[in-house]
């Protein structure tokens, strides 16, 4: 027994230290290097604009964009709110819809055969081309943008979640059946937790697509939102505003992505194969 204990303990210690080496996400260089590169690019951009006296209409300098953001953060924030809220709504609906379709596909062979080829075919349509139709069908309000966002974002959730549900170890399913588990018990205690890593990878793609969906919707028709601001400012050759809106959009996107990553980290606490 004592022998077995020692061997497993060393067995644990080895991959743990190995993983740290491979991830490399903890070392100071992993923060310094990307930030340094970003700073370098911004510095070159700034110097280029200053030295060659590039007009602000063509390319505003990073410093002037920052100054604009600081001076007009209230206007930018006003536009950022609807974009973020609609993206989040589109994303959440896409996840719910995607998981629901994945459940149907997993549990019904007929549904799988009927749905799956059509879903894939659907993916081949350049979906951005359909965005104006959503305005015709659902009007100029936020519902059309949210619907388009769902439309564009649900597919990766379906694919990833289905893969997760179907990847469950057959042995564990057999064990559950031997224990007289109901389908619902198997779903909640085995299938769903086992599919979580897959679901989260689908969600990470979905959140970026949901934002794209909303921005496209705002490009076509909106009275507010960062997409609207970008189109509006570009039309008036107000490149500085347009750039500032893009920067704020990046921040909003990071925020939403960060929330998904946070949710994943929380889920990992309960459903990870690691002890810590």
């Amino acid at each position: 027994m004592a022998k077995a204990t020692i061997s497993t303990e060393t067995g644990v210690a080895l991959p743990a230290s190995g993983a740290g080496r491979f991830q490399g996400a903890v070392g100071p260089s992993s923060i310094v290097l990307p930030l340094g590169l970003a700073f370098l690019v911004l510095a070159v951009w700034q110097l280029y604009v200053v030295i060659w006296r590039v007009p602000a209409v063509i390319l505003p300098s990073p410093i002037s964009i920052t100054e604009y953001i600081v001076a007009h953060y209230d206007i930018l924030l006003m536009h950022a709110v609807p974009t973020t809220v609609e993206s989040a709504a589109g994303f959440l609906l896409a996840v719910v819809l995607g998981i629901a379709i994945a459940i149907v596909i997993t549990y019904s062979d007929m549904a799988r055969e009927a749905l799956y080829p059509n879903l894939v075919f659907f993916q081949l349509i350049p979906k951005i081309a359909l965005a104006p139709l959503f305005i015709i069908w659902l009007g100029v309000g936020s519902q059309s943008r949210v619907a388009f966002s769902v439309f564009i974002a649900f597919f990766p959730v379906v694919i990833a979640t289905t893969a997760g549900f179907l990847s469950v170890d057959r042995g564990i399913l057999r064990l559950c059946r031997a224990l007289t588990a109901t389908e619902w018990q198997i779903f909640t205690s085995v299938r769903f937790p086992m599919a979580l890593p897959h679901i989260f990878s689908g969600m990470k793609i979905a959140i970026t697509l949901a934002i794209i969906g909303v921005i496209i919707g705002e490009f076509i028709t909106a009275q507010a939102g960062l997409g609207y601001l970008i189109i509006f400012a570009t039309a008036r050759a107000d490149t500085e505003v347009s750039m500032a809106a893009i920067v704020v959009l990046c921040i909003c996107g990071l925020l939403l992505y960060g929330l998904v990553a946070l949710a994943e980290a929380v889920a990992n606490k309960f459903y990870s194969a690691d002890s810590r």
């Binding site: 064990l175 031997a178 990870s272």
Partner: peptide, 19 residues
């Protein structure tokens, strides 16, 4: 006719839930 509660089954693989 179907699996029963008064049976314990052990398979070739331990089939433990990894999390």
């Amino acid at each position: 006719a179907a699996p029963r509660r008064d049976i314990g089954v052990i398979f070739q693989d331990a089939t433990l839930l990894p999390w």
